Simulated scan of single mutants.
Amino acid sequence: MSGKDGINVKDFLIGGLIGGIVGSVTALLLAPKSGKELRGDLHEQVDVMKEKGAQWKDVAYEKGIEIGNVAKDKKAALVDSASEFVGVVKDKSGQLYETVSKQTKSVKETASAGFEATKQVAQKAGETFKSEAKDARDDVKQAADKSKEEVKEASETAKNKTEKIVHDAKKELKK
């Protein structure tokens, strides 16, 4: 889950969480409140951060399962497609054998024609397999990009909330 820009999402989230906690604790420690109120506020902030972390973890886990399921489905489709093409190749080879046995023409001409037909079927099977694999790769990439965007949005929301808490705390300190 690391991006090309060198930022690890996990490290970013941990840094945001630690920054939010440090900012909240600092604001609460500097606020003119009683010890009981301060502990209550700290406890509330810790609970909120725990809930957010659990939600992010659940979203990431669900997206990982979805991506895995898409990959499994594409793999099964590719295996089925390849099996069908093997059957086609076998059928063509059988037809070629019967044609060679029945015909009285030159063995070289018949073998050459059969080779060409088999080659075309094999090329078509290879192209189809390549296309299916590319489609599966694209689907998995899209799902990963979507998950990355959702984590980014969740991180941005957490950042904004943390900044609001710090801003509110600063306002409270100025009073």
Rank of each mutant, 00 (worst) to 15 (best):
A111N: 12
A113S: 05
E51N: 05
E84Q: 14
K33I: 10
S101L: 14
K50F: 03
G53C: 03
D139G: 05
K57V: 06
G126S: 14
K33T: 13
V9W: 02
D139A: 13
I21C: 07
I7Y: 05
G23P: 00
K119C: 12
E150C: 02
K50P: 01
G94N: 04
K152M: 11
T118K: 06
K4S: 13
E109I: 08
P32W: 07
K52F: 03
E172W: 09
V25Y: 00
L17E: 01
G68P: 12
K57Q: 08
K75W: 15
V140Y: 07
V151R: 07
E109K: 08
V59F: 10
A143D: 11
G16N: 09
V140S: 14
D41P: 04
K119Q: 10
A54M: 12
T162Q: 02
D91A: 01
G15H: 14
S24H: 01
L38M: 15
Q45Y: 00
T99V: 05
A82C: 03
V70G: 03
S83H: 08
S81M: 04
G3Y: 10
D91G: 03
E127G: 06
G35R: 11
K161S: 02
K90V: 02
G87D: 10
F85K: 07
S106K: 15
V140D: 05
T157A: 08
A133D: 06
K102D: 14
D41H: 09
A117C: 03
Y97E: 11
T118H: 04
R39A: 02
E172F: 11
A27P: 01
A77S: 05
E172M: 14
A113P: 00
T157G: 04
S147C: 12
G19H: 05
K171R: 13
D73A: 12
L96H: 06
I67H: 04
K90G: 01
T99E: 01
G16S: 07
K92I: 01
K105P: 01
D41V: 08
